[in-house]
Every structure is written in structure tokens, then in C-alpha cells.
Amino acid sequence: MKRKLSGNTAHRPAGVNNYLPVLAALVLSLFYHPAVLADADVEKGMAIAIEADRRDSGFGDSTVDLTMLIASASGDIVTREMRQMVLEVANDGDKSIMVFDRPRDLKGTAILTFTHKSGDDEQWLYLPALKRVKRISSADKSGPFMGSEFAYEDLSSQEVEKYRYRYLRDDAIDGTPCFVVERVPVDKNSGYTRQLTWVDQDEYRLQRVDYYDRKDSLLKSMRPVGYQQYLDRYWRPSEMVMSNHQTGKSTTLKFGNYQFRTGARDADFTPSAIARIR
């Protein structure tokens, strides 16, 4: 990623003196050129994403209990309960396991995901009724997770390399100053043309995401709330609310009992390991 950040200066011929960038900036400011400004916004957007990622790295592993409250079409609230385990992987995307506790017919069902910075993620599904571990296609990004307003891609590990970025403007959410950064999914299987993200300027936490569907219409908004800091460093929300603007339905995802550095090992995140989880 460092290469990308310095990409604009990498082509500078050897021997050109150090004043050239300053001179260039002066010339450019005299002859205003939107493409160059946009390029700076791309760099700034990328820099914000990298900083947010840097601040969240080094947690090692974590576990969390999830409760999903899905508002059905009839207005009833349906509850789903899961547990998630995450293992940080050096120089690649995280490994994660999602285990279902409710509904009871899915109890013990587990999904193992190897997120990759580039290329397809890898996914396995454990079906406890057959005691069968199945490698499944990870191409299904945009499908709804458990009939909720969250898509699978909304819940997957958010690696920097999964998007292209552009800083748009500063804004405030509930009085908190934020950067507004547009990000465009790299994966062609994504259900979104783009997302607008609000990242607070103090702690680089995600404060809001607007999702635009394949027709580039505003589809959903997600608000993480109730941030708490763990290990004096890592911020985690207590709740994420996903609102669908096109259907009026919403899903609330609650997080509880965060644990960090539990001693999880690579061997706990394998296809054969998810068959042993209860």
C-alpha cells in the first residue's frame, strides 16, 4: 500500500531538485485542474482507510456474542443469536468463525471464512445434522445474511484492499467531526456500486455507512453506536443498526461479551476445527 501512496512521486526523474513539487503545486494552483484535485482526494481517502486499519491492527484475536433483531415484513421482531471468533492474520485478511445458537434448528452451524486482501475469500460451512464440512462458494457477497438487512459482505472483514477510496468532505455526526469517504468495492460480485463512509477524525471509527445499490440508488444506511475501548486501544460498537430505505425494514445487530487475546491459534480456524465447535 505504501507503493500506491507514493505512486505520484515515484516517477520523478532522478536529479530533479526538491523544490519541484512545490513549484508544481504553485503552477497547478494557478491553473486549477479538477483531475489533480481529485487525485489528492483519492490519496486522502486511502490514507484515512489505512490509518483506521492501522489503529485497529494488533488485537490478535477476539470473540464476541451477537444478537440480531430482524424486523419482519409483518412488524414482528425475530431474534437470531450467534458467536463470532476472529483471528488476525499477518499480511492478509482476518480468519473468522460464525457459530449459530438461535434459531435452534441451526444450532451448531458454523461458517469459517478466510478473508484475503486480494482474490476470492475462502469459506466453509459446517452442517451439524450431517456432521459435514462443506467448502462453499464465496462469490455470494450480496445475498442477505439470515434474511436480515445485512448482506454477507456487510459482515465480512473490512480489509483496506477490498475498496477504492475517495475523500469527499468533512461532516459531523451528532457533533463529532467526521471525514466523509466514498469507497467503491473492488469485487465485481459486490451488491453495491459505492458506499459513503463517515469516519470520525479523533479515533478513525466508522460512524455511518450509506450503501448504494447496483442502480446507484441509496439502498441502506448503517449506524454503529455505543463504542467502547478495549485493551486501551481497540474501539468496538455495542450495536449496529441497518436501515433499508427502499423497504423501510431494519435490523439491529447487538454485540456483547467482547474478549480479546483469548489464546486462539491458527489450528482453531481450519475446516476440521469448525466440526468441533459447539
Binding site: K107, Q259, G263
Partner: peptide, 21 residues
């Protein structure tokens, strides 16, 4: 002295559960 996943569940049994159909 370190954070363990079973912290808070007591010492002997980490987790136990009935289920079925």
C-alpha cells in the same frame, strides 16, 4: 491473570448445554 474466554463462567465447567429435537 490473563483474559480467558471462560472467565466469568466459574472454574470447572466452561460451557454445557442441552439441545435436540
Amino acid at each position: 491473570g490473563v483474559t480467558m474466554p471462560e472467565a466469568g463462567f466459574g472454574a470447572v465447567i466452561d460451557r454445557g448445554e442441552w439441545s435436540g429435537y
